[in-house]
């Protein structure tokens, strides 16, 4: 589904990603783990077109999308939930959700999708007319995920969804991801600092360290040593 080949992203002289190659299989959840500054967020931003790679390729179903603008990549079915959700706080819950699927130009289908999101996250239905500024952190993360799902993406990029959330809410988000994978065949790239939370749903994990892949972990593999090495350096 998604393949990165020797991806290099640099901010000035600093290489945030230094030749990263990885594959996210269709219908699977790929976790990208690593400490602060390892390049996890940059990796997602490069895939969704918010930063331009200096070299290397971002292949979506074999097509190089590395030089497309973000709004066009979205229209190929890639949804990116940025860190802390990126909910637009001035807009209502309903407007945020609607915005997520507008580009498909299918009004009836969009209304149905939004109603399905409300079924998925009942607290959002209760608050549909309120501005998003009034939502709690957990509700915002639900809204952000819901808004991404409204567009029925093929590939979902999630940046630290469990950051700052109560463990119960984080588990709820992870459960939704797992269900979307199982029922809709959604492909997910999940960036997390919280390895335990991410590995609870991931089929496969990649550990980034200082901009390159330090380890790849298949599901069920004993991971403790290599993870510790990547996070702590010993």
């Amino acid at each position: 589904m998604l393949e990165l080949r020797e991806l290099v992203v640099a901010y000035g002289a600093v290489r945030a990603l230094d030749g990263v190659s990885l594959t996210a299989a269709k219908g699977g959840i790929t976790a990208v783990l690593g400490a602060n500054g390892a390049g996890k967020t940059t990796l997602l931003r490069a895939v969704s077109g918010l930063v331009r790679p200096r070299s290397g390729e971002v292949l979506l179903d074999g097509r190089d999308i590395g030089r497309l603008p973000a709004e066009e990549i979205t229209r190929l079915g890639v949804a990116h939930v940025p860190e802390s959700g990126g909910v637009i706080i001035e807009l209502t819950v309903e407007e945020n959700l609607r915005l997520g699927g507008l580009w498909r130009r299918e009004n009836a289908a969009l209304r149905r999708q939004i109603s399905e999101i409300y079924d998925l996250f009942p607290p959002l239905r209760v608050r549909q007319g309120r501005v998003a500024a009034t939502l709690s952190g957990g509700e915002r993360q639900m809204l952000a995920l819901g808004r991404a799902l409204v567009s029925r993406p093929r590939l979902l990029l999630m940046d630290e969804p469990s950051l700052g959330l109560a463990p119960r809410v984080a588990a709820q988000i992870m459960a939704v991801l797992r269900r979307q994978r199982d029922e809709q065949g959604l492909t997910v790239v999940l960036v997390e600092q919280n390895a335990r939370s991410a590995l609870s749903v991931a089929d496969h994990a990649v550990v980034l360290s200082l901009g390159s892949v330090a380890a790849e972990i298949a599901q069920g593999e004993a991971i403790d040593d290599r993870l510790r090495h990547a996070y702590l350096g010993f």
Binding site: S48, G49, L50, P69, A70, E71, T74, R75, A79, H80, P82, G86, I88, I89, E90, L91, E95, R98, L99, G100, L102, W103, R147, S151
Partner: peptide, 24 residues
Amino acid sequence: TDLGLKLRASAFAPEVARLLGVRV
């Protein structure tokens, strides 16, 4: 209108709007 929604989103949060497919 949906156009107005896209206009407001582009003004409030251009980067997020782009991620939602709005041609900012």
